[in-house]
């Protein structure tokens, strides 16, 4: 009788500020639609759920062809931030501050807040065992949203029938 609920699983493999948000936003939207959500954090994605890293995620303008000067309100059209400028000390910090202030103005929660919302909304979040072992991360270094550290095979088991999105 009972139909199996729709289930979306996200694999977060990136630790950049801009790559942190897709899974958080879509995961939150999924919970809002009554869909089950599982998030697996692997490799650099573990930065999102590590206490000392979560508030310090950054976006680097170097080699980022999407980063245009016009985003900062300058009338420069399609002109990107030259990579040479991107290597100036402080540019990454500036770009990160800039993106954070833009998101704040939009009322977007921080990564830390999003994780808390997702966890409270019932999303299940796990760390990747192999990466955790490789980076030597201890359990108490993770935010409380991390339920467990599991193997890739465990993740495959727990996402049977789910739609999987790799980020």
């Amino acid at each position: 009788m009972a139909e199996k609920n729709r289930h979306i699983a996200f694999i977060c493999s990136k630790g950049d500020l801009d790559m942190a948000y897709p899974a958080l936003i879509m995961g939150w939207a999924a919970l809002g639609n009554g869909v089950d959500v599982t998030i697996f954090f692997t490799f650099w994605g573990l930065d999102l759920v590590t206490k000392k890293r979560v508030d310090k995620l950054e976006i680097a303008p170097v080699a980022n062809t999407s980063f245009k000067m016009s985003m900062m309100g300058l009338p420069t059209g399609n002109l990107g931030i030259p990579n040479l400028m991107g290597i100036i000390p402080g540019m990454t910090a500036f770009a990160s501050w800039f993106m954070k202030s833009k998101m704040k103005a939009l009322g977007t929660p921080t990564v830390r807040e999003y994780l808390e919302m997702l966890s409270d909304g019932g999303a299940k979040m796990y760390g990747c065992k192999m990466t955790v072992d490789m980076f030597g991360i201890k359990r108490d270094e993770f935010l409380p949203c991390i339920k467990d550290v599991v193997t890739a095979s465990d993740f495959i088991d727990m996402t049977e029938g789910a739609q999987i999105i790799f980020i």
Binding site: N5, L31, G32, N33, G34, G122
Partner: peptide
């Protein structure tokens, strides 16, 4: 989420 399960808003 407890009061209005599965998609509260």
């Amino acid at each position: 989420f407890a009061l209005f399960p599965k998609g509260p808003a």
